[in-house]
């Protein structure tokens, strides 16, 4: 069984950009490498959002098919390749989450665990993957409870800022401030993960 390592957020040979170039030339092995690198992360994210393995599988497949057939175009100005893939997967998963049948289904199921960030890994990854996971989990733990809640509602529940304000019964300005402060804090704590990488990538070309 394939497991996309979270460590894929680090650069590995061949570079992600090179994989995309090969995919544009129709090289299926490049897509397979990209899937092996990030499939696990995409599926984990999709499952976290939709809460249903079968629907998460559909999101996973759709994400990589869209990356292959040009329905989604990568723009290097918008960040790294995995961020782009996570964006596709997250948007597709939110579309599923917002569909009426899914909402009805979820209402009848137990609430999706919200503490997944603190959960023990179901799959033991490489040491680097575990370290990365711990880094992100610790960064999230460094937020206040209301900041974490705002991030959770925005990113994993797919609520807009107005919907979050309504859900929490807080002024819109308060929600905006919480999200901004949370993102600024995370930006600092995760600097090593998100620092600009164009130089690294160009050197590999």
């Amino acid at each position: 069984m394939r497991r996309g390592p979270p460590a894929g957020m680090r650069f590995e040979e061949p570079a992600d950009l090179e994989l995309l170039r090969r995919m544009q030339r129709g090289d299926e092995s490049a897509l397979e490498t990209l899937y092996a690198r990030y499939g696990g992360l995409v599926f984990t994210l999709a499952l976290r959002i939709v809460g249903d393995p079968e629907l998460a599988r559909e999101v996973l497949q759709d994400t990589f098919l869209r990356s292959w057939d040009g329905r989604e175009t990568y723009d290097s100005r918008r960040g790294r390749v995995p961020w782009w893939l996570m964006g596709i997967a997250r948007n597709r998963a939110i579309d599923v989450l917002r569909s009426r049948p899914h909402q009805a289904r979820m209402r009848e199921q137990a609430a999706t665990p919200s503490g997944a960030h603190e959960a023990e890994p179901a799959v033991q990854g490489a040491a680097e993957a575990t370290a990365l996971r711990r880094t992100v989990a610790q960064a999230l733990a460094g937020l206040s409870e209301v900041q974490r809640e705002a991030i959770e509602l925005a990113y994993y529940r797919g609520l807009t800022q107005v919907e979050i304000a309504r859900y929490l019964g807080q002024p819109l300005g308060t929600v905006k401030s919480r999200i901004r402060d949370a993102m600024e804090r995370l930006r600092t704590l995760l600097e090593s993960l998100i620092e600009p990488t164009e130089d690294l990538e160009s050197r590999r070309d």
């Binding site: 069984m1 394939r2 497991r3 996309g4 979270p6 957020m9 397979e32 899937y35 499939g39 696990g40 992360l41 599926f43 984990t44 994210l45 499952l47 976290r48 393995p53 998460a56 599988r57 996973l60 497949q61 918008r78 960040g79 790294r80 995995p82 961020w83 782009w84 996570m86 964006g87 997944a116 960030h117 959960a119 023990e120 890994p121 179901a122 799959v123 990854g125 993957a129 990365l132 996971r133 880094t135 992100v136 989990a137 960064a139 999230l140 991030i151 990113y155 993102m183 995370l186 930006r187 995760l190 993960l193 998100i194």
Partner: peptide, 21 residues
């Protein structure tokens, strides 16, 4: 966007479903 794209790294990973690839 790097922050947002990194959030899933903090999730407990789950095995990929069979036959997806």
């Amino acid at each position: 966007q790097g922050v947002a794209g990194s959030l899933p790294i903090g999730l407990a990973p789950v095995p990929l479903p069979p036959e997806a690839w």
